[in-house]
């Protein structure tokens, strides 16, 4: 099988890897680059556990080919904190108990960050619709919505 060389940037670092033509970005991140923060919950774009940003756009990494990452800027949950300093969303998720098992959390954090990047003051309804592509089976979403809102308030300086 022919492999494809890809050079890309992940969380600000340049990265090069070889991948199979049919390989997903999710598999390349997890199995080739050791970035196992993004999870595979379904492999079909239905759960959002694999959410990452490609050039600032929120995508399901299980639906993107690894080869499409060529020249792109990828952001994953591993890049959200700056060193020891957690992103406000990460902090509020812990403080508001917005995770139980935590397997949906990386995807939800990336998705929520994408929301707040373009809408710093969403309504609860907007948060709920934006996150409708991210399944969480543990929490019933209540505390997730609250955590996103309290992080948003802090980020607005409210």
């Amino acid at each position: 099988m022919k492999t494809i060389p890809v050079s890309t940037r992940v969380n600000g670092d340049s990265v090069e890897f070889l991948c199979a033509p049919e390989e997903t970005l999710l598999d390349a991140l997890r199995n080739r680059l050791g970035l196992t923060g993004a999870k595979e919950g379904c492999g079909s774009g239905d759960c959002g556990a694999c959410s990452v940003l490609v050039d600032g756009r929120l995508v399901c990494a299980c639906l993107v080919l690894a080869a499409e990452a060529e020249g792109a800027e990828i952001a994953t949950v591993e890049g959200m904190a700056e060193g020891e300093r957690l992103h406000p969303l990460q902090r509020h998720f812990i403080d508001s108990a917005a995770l139980q098992c935590g397997v949906c959390t990386p995807g939800i954090l990336v998705a929520a960050k994408a929301l707040l990047d373009h809408n710093p003051d969403p309504s609860d309804e907007e948060v709920r619709y934006w996150l409708a592509g991210n399944l969480c089976r543990c929490t019933g979403y209540d505390k997730i919505v609250r955590a996103v809102q309290s992080a948003a308030a802090e980020m607005r300086g409210a």
Partner: peptide, 12 residues
């Protein structure tokens, strides 16, 4: 285990 689970470090 909160920090591990919001940073992607937790091993599932």
């Amino acid at each position: 285990d909160g920090i591990d689970k919001v940073t992607g470090r937790a091993m599932y």
